[in-house]
Design a protein around this nucleic acid. Structure first.
Lengths: 232, 232
DNA sequence: GTCGGTAGTTGAACACGTTCAAGAAGGGCG
DNA sequence: CGCCCTTCTTGAACGTGTTCAACTACCGAC
């Protein structure tokens, strides 16, 4: 609450300084209210009032209510990366690394399960900047794909040479599938999602290993060709 | 436009007669405007005005604007069924039957591509009655699953006995995946989606055939166990 | 210090989805 | 014909996300 005239955050912050505090204040207030009351129940007026600013001020920093969700995205991605670090340090085999990173992602999201469920509708709209496939989301998305790249590069797994460059993105896609399941998961504590991860990872692991077999080469190539055709 | 006091539609219509005409008028007007202007751009006031009724009247028949989408669902499912019939009559092999039914589904949806893209956001919300997984959508959903059941039962394909009962629902799930891709497909005429179908069907076909091999039995069983655990 | 311009801030106003108290229409029954 | 009850219809009013013209705070230039 006390005045903080000097920039105390990391030096060289590229953001223009003046409104940065207000921006963060609005963002933090919004994310807190989203968690407390849910997305639909949190009005822009409530966010503004709670943050002690005018409604229009929130719109100066965030183009719409939806854009506040993108802040949630970015933060979740950062926390996911941090939560995954111990796993990447500890595990060497591909399977445990993948499982660990997937579990870490769900760990991070769990406190926001109810809230996330309601807001994922916005993310699903293709034209929305909130879509995980959109250009506006490319930052967090690429960071996430890189994370799955690390799952791979740090592991002892031997992967088909053609498959390898595609695999991080495919694993990210699988992660999106896990999240889609998680969002719909009404089991207590989302236990089912954990079972999905533990059940699917060994299958993926086996599939990746099989992709190197000579007999399966044609199939592998067929699948990869299809994927290359389909991705943008 | 002329008065039509007597019930001229199929006799024994279970709906209460009085407001049925109004209901259909509102529904048809809404679906037309959705196609013409898009979902977000069509206001409830516009629907009411165009249909010549009061705004509140639309809410007497449809709980919300979203509920009008469910009408679209139902209609699309019926048209899909009809469009699939020739394929089911003509083809015998599993692959062509599946491909034909998938293409028929996209055929039916194509005129509404833009509109569908915007409204799928609502469908993605788990708590929404519009979710394809929701109880309220069980009618169209089960009809769709049955359609894929017909793809299977009418075909000459030999399927693993354990897999068979699960397969229709899995094929429907794959169809949902195709639609998800189609919604995001920005290629002219959604050509990419057609390529997805033509590329993925042979793989599914091969996979289904392989499921019977003794060597792959453990994997098949593992996958089926996982699915059984996960579905509700 | 004063001026000018940019960055930041305000809150009333707008369009929308939705609700609801009030009423109209219709039909069965005496 | 008059009565009552259900079904249907109305449109003003509410709360929401969003916009925007006006205003204020700050900072460098002279």
């Amino acid at each position: 609450m006390t005045e903080q005239p000097a920039q105390t955050t990391t030096a060289g912050d590229p953001a223009t300084a003046r409104g940065e505090q207000t921006r963060q204040l609005i963002r933090d207030t919004a994310l807190r209210l989203f968690r407390e009351r849910g997305y639909a129940q949190t009005t822009m007026r409530a966010i503004a009032q709670e943050a002690g600013v005018a409604v229009g001020n929130a719109y100066y920093y965030f183009g719409s209510k939806d854009h506040l969700i993108q802040e949630f995205y970015a933060q979740a991605q950062i926390e996911h990366r941090a939560a995954a670090q111990p796993v990447l340090d500890r595990e060497e085999a591909f399977g445990p690394r993948l499982a660990g990173v997937l579990h870490a992602g769900i760990d991070v999201l769990t406190p926001s399960h109810e809230f996330a469920a309601t807001f994922f509708k916005t993310a699903a709209e293709p034209t929305s900047p909130l879509s995980p496939f959109s250009a506006e989301s490319s930052g967090p998305r690429e960071a996430a794909i890189d994370l799955f790249g690390e799952v791979l590069t740090g592991s002892t797994a031997k992967v088909d040479a053609e498959l390898r460059p595609q695999l991080p993105e495919l694993l990210w896609l699988a992660y999106m599938g896990v999240i889609l399941y998680w969002v719909h998961d009404r089991s207590p504590g989302q236990t089912k999602t954990r079972q999905l991860i533990d059940g699917a990872v060994p299958l993926v692991d086996r599939l990746v290993a099989l992709s190197r077999l000579r007999v399966l080469r044609p199939v592998t190539r067929q699948v990869l060709d299809l994927i290359r055709t389909l991705r943008h």
